[in-house]
Amino acid sequence: MIRICKAHTKAHLEGILDLQSKNLREVLSDEVQKEQGFLTVRHDCKVLEEMNNRLNHIIALDGEEVVGYALSMTPDLKDRIPVLEEMFERINNLEYKGSNLGKSNYYIMGQICIAEKYRGTGLFYALYNEHRKYYSPYFDHFITEVSASNQRSLRAHEKTGFKTILNYYDQTDSWYLILWDWNDQNETS
């Protein structure tokens, strides 16, 4: 039976890193990337733990095995992952609903991944719904970015309720900056 919960232990973090290592863009064929999606950022245990200490990651467990995760990242940790600096700069210079997005009450979805065997089972949405359950009382919205090459992920995020607020290029890729506004009554989940 699959259980969705907050990450609390070192074993949970190690399970996240293990699943992450199997789904990084650099280890997947072009065909698998196109069909199944991919991850861009490799986290180290120290940063992953620091992120989790601020705002617990949400994980899917089959027994004790991590079979899915959706990472949480607060803006104060933006310097811990250099490849995300451009995203935070964009957020800080973007207006959303007439206000500066960087000054709004938001957090970052640091990465989402579902083990291959569990894809298409609803875990993606279950992980995001847990984020909403736990964190919507404290935050107005949830922001992330998706590579333009990762259309499977972009479609899944859109089905969840994320809206594209900016498309931009940096030195690594073309990105969709997307936001799930929990206060917008027109949003779906």
Rank of each mutant, 00 (worst) to 15 (best):
H57K: 03
L166P: 10
Y125T: 12
Y169L: 10
F139G: 15
G37H: 05
Q151D: 14
V66R: 06
K97V: 12
E50T: 10
N100M: 11
F139W: 12
H157W: 14
S72G: 02
E49N: 07
D44E: 12
Y107C: 09
G122N: 01
E145T: 04
T74P: 00
L179Y: 08
Y128G: 10
A156T: 10
E145S: 10
Y107K: 04
L166S: 06
E50R: 14
L13R: 01
F38D: 04
V27W: 14
N186Q: 13
V83C: 12
I16D: 07
V41I: 14
H8M: 05
V146Y: 15
N92Y: 09
M73W: 03
A148C: 15
N93F: 10
G98A: 07
N53P: 00
F142K: 05
T164D: 07
A156R: 03
E130F: 04
E49Y: 01
L28Y: 08
S21N: 09
R155A: 14
G161T: 00
L101D: 05
E116F: 03
E89Y: 15
K34T: 11
L71T: 07
L61H: 01
R25M: 05
A60K: 03
Y107H: 06
D140K: 02
R54I: 12
V66M: 07
R132V: 07
L166G: 05
K103E: 14
N183F: 09
E31C: 01
W180M: 02
K159Q: 11
T121V: 06
Y135V: 11
S174N: 13
E158H: 09
V83T: 13
Q33E: 08
H8T: 09
A11V: 00
Y118D: 10
I16T: 06
E14W: 01
I112W: 04
K10P: 09
G102P: 08
L123Y: 02
H12C: 01
V47G: 03
L55N: 09
L84H: 06
L61D: 02
N105M: 06
Q171T: 13
Y118W: 14
Y135H: 11
T144A: 11
E14T: 01
L13F: 00
I81Q: 12
E64P: 02
G15S: 06
K133H: 13
L177K: 07
G15L: 07
L101V: 00
L101Q: 03
N129W: 13
H43K: 03
C5S: 13
Q36V: 07
L19N: 08
